[in-house]
């Protein structure tokens, strides 16, 4: 059966990871190099492995063109993968599947270092898997955890006050006289990821501290769609003031981009930006030291 396809600069191969979970590994023209990390591209919400607006495919092929193996797959119950029979809750199940995928890829590529890329729920799953498995040397989180800071509220209020028509509404909200609008549910046929609340901020901060201690490199990207929680470039640092990220953290703030990256220039910024970050941070043999 034909499970490999070659394109001009990369090739792709169907690589299942057991329990019916489906994935596609994208390989550089010269094949995998064991001393370079492999990038796992995780599901975003309920979107299947090609990613919102096919960005996961573009990212995988771009990374492979730059010499890195990239793997995209469907978690249980998403895309082409069957529902889980593990009995684990969704979060624990996804971490377990990421760990399993890394083991399969370790056998396939010879590399035992991994970078986890995730948008939205994928950013959360990647974070938890990085904490659980020391083979993870880097994470990319697009619209991951966000906690409002003093400066966030200040900026939000100032931006609203710029439009004087909103002053009565802002004051009304502050005084509790006006309730925020309740967003209507979508139609009954629609299925979206159920989003639990973020974990407590101190728990996430402690997690980042552990990752930094291990030397895990972090790329955090926020889009304008997260403006209700994240509204300025350096907010990430202010959310975790007790964590010394040193030179391990790289931030990208795209205030005009939408969460699912429908605009071609935003797709390019994320795909090129992540690829450049991987190439810069993870050269042959690097990425293990703190």
């Amino acid at each position: 059966m034909d499970t490999v396809v070659k394109e001009s600069a990369v090739s792709e191969e169907i690589l299942p990871i057991g329990d019916g979970l489906v994935g596609v590994v994208c390989l550089p023209a010269g094949g995998p190099e064991a001393d370079l990390p492999v990038v796992l591209i995780l599901n975003s919400g309920v979107i299947h492995r090609v990613g919102a607006c096919r960005v996961s495919v573009k990212l995988a092929r771009n990374l492979a063109s730059a010499g890195y193996v990239a793997y995209r797959f469907d978690h249980s119950g998403i895309g082409d993968s069957p529902p889980s029979r593990s009995g684990l809750d969704v979060d624990a199940g996804q971490v377990s599947e990421i760990v399993k995928a890394m083991t399969v890829l370790e056998h396939r590529t010879g590399s035992s270092r991994f970078i986890l890329y995730g948008l939205c729920s994928g950013a959360r799953a990647g974070f938890q898997a990085a904490l659980a498995d020391s083979r993870v040397v880097g994470i990319v989180q697009v619209d991951g955890f966000a906690y409002r800071t003093f400066r966030y509220y200040l900026l939000k209020s100032l931006r609203r006050l710029r439009h004087f028509r909103t002053i009565p509404r802002v004051l009304g909200r502050w005084l509790g006289l006006i309730k925020p609008p309740v967003r209507d549910g979508t139609d009954g046929d629609m299925w979206v990821q159920e989003w639990p609340d973020y974990p407590p901020q101190e728990e996430v901060a402690a997690g980042y501290a552990r990752l930094v201690e291990r030397g895990v490199r972090i790329r955090a990207i926020y889009t304008g769609s997260w403006k209700d929680e994240y509204n300025y470039h350096g907010q990430f640092f202010d959310m975790y003031p007790g964590v010394d990220f040193g030179g391990l953290l790289s931030l990208q703030y795209l205030p005009h981009a939408q969460h699912i990256l429908p605009h071609p220039s935003d797709q390019g910024r994320v795909v090129e930006g992540v690829t450049e970050w991987v190439v810069t941070e993870f050269t042959h043999g690097s990425g293990t030291e703190a």
Binding site: S44, G45, V46, I47, A52, C120, T186, D187, G188, D189, M190, W191, V192, Q193, S225, Q258, H259, I260, P262
Partner: peptide, 21 residues
């Protein structure tokens, strides 16, 4: 009768599963 709204793009990547359809 079911959702015809296939090309609508929400901000969270919702998908449609119109069971009757």
């Amino acid at each position: 009768p079911s959702s015809p709204n296939w090309n609508y793009s929400d901000d969270v990547g919702g998908i449609l599963l119109p069971r009757e359809m």
